[in-house]
Structures are given as C-alpha cells and as structure tokens.
C-alpha cells in the first residue's frame, strides 16, 4: 500500500487551515505566533511532498523548504522578542489591549 502526492497535499491544506483559524481567532500574541508556525509547517510539508513526487532529482522543493525554515526561525525569534518588549511596556500580551499606534 502506497500513497501519492494528493494525501500529503490534503494533509498540508488541513494543517494550514487549522493554523489560519488559530492565528485569526486567538487573542494571546504567543498563541498567534504558535499558529503561524503551524501554517509554516504546512507549507513546508507541501513543498517537500510535491518536490518528492514530481521532480525528485532536482530537490527544488527541499531547498525552498529549507529557506522557508530560515525565514520562519527569524520570524519566530523576532516575534517573541517583540512580545517580550510589548510585555515590558504594557504588562500584557493580550492583543485586544494593544490597539494604539502611539508608543
């Protein structure tokens, strides 16, 4: 019994939707960042799966996934640093309480 690319793409789509739902509905900044990581993982899974089944020799999807990982790592590091800076200023990580553009 073997599987093709379509089950992997469906799995990645469902994981992306779960992450999108979390990123849009959560009110804690840390939970939003965690949901964004779920979405990034779904994208990586899709890239690797399609690359594995369609162009296995060139590995283009694997390289793209590796660079997506770099950007995601930078994003989560900066995002959490921003959360810490906001917490030090405002004593909260609730996104509903951080609604002013003034510093």
């Amino acid at each position: 019994m073997t599987v093709g690319p379509v089950p992997f793409m469906a799995l990645a789509a469902i994981l992306f939707a779960i992450g999108l739902f979390g990123a849009l509905s959560k009110k804690s900044a840390v939970m939003v960042l965690m949901s964004l990581e779920l979405m990034t993982n779904a994208v990586n899974l899709n890239l690797v799966a399609v690359s594995r089944f369609v162009t296995p020799e060139s590995m283009a999807g694997q390289f793209t996934a590796a660079f997506v990982m770099v950007v995601a790592a930078a994003e989560i590091g900066l995002g959490l640093a921003l959360v810490l800076a906001l917490y030090r200023k405002r004593r909260t990580v609730e996104l509903d309480h951080i609604d002013e553009l003034k510093g």
Partner: peptide, 14 residues
C-alpha cells in the same frame, strides 16, 4: 478565544 468569522475564513481557504 474561538470566533466564528475566523472559522469561516479558515474553512473558505480549506
């Protein structure tokens, strides 16, 4: 923190 509008958007993307 579950919101119906977020669920709707996620479902539409899915």
């Amino acid at each position: 923190d579950l919101s119906w509008s977020a669920a709707g958007i996620a479902l539409a993307v899915l």
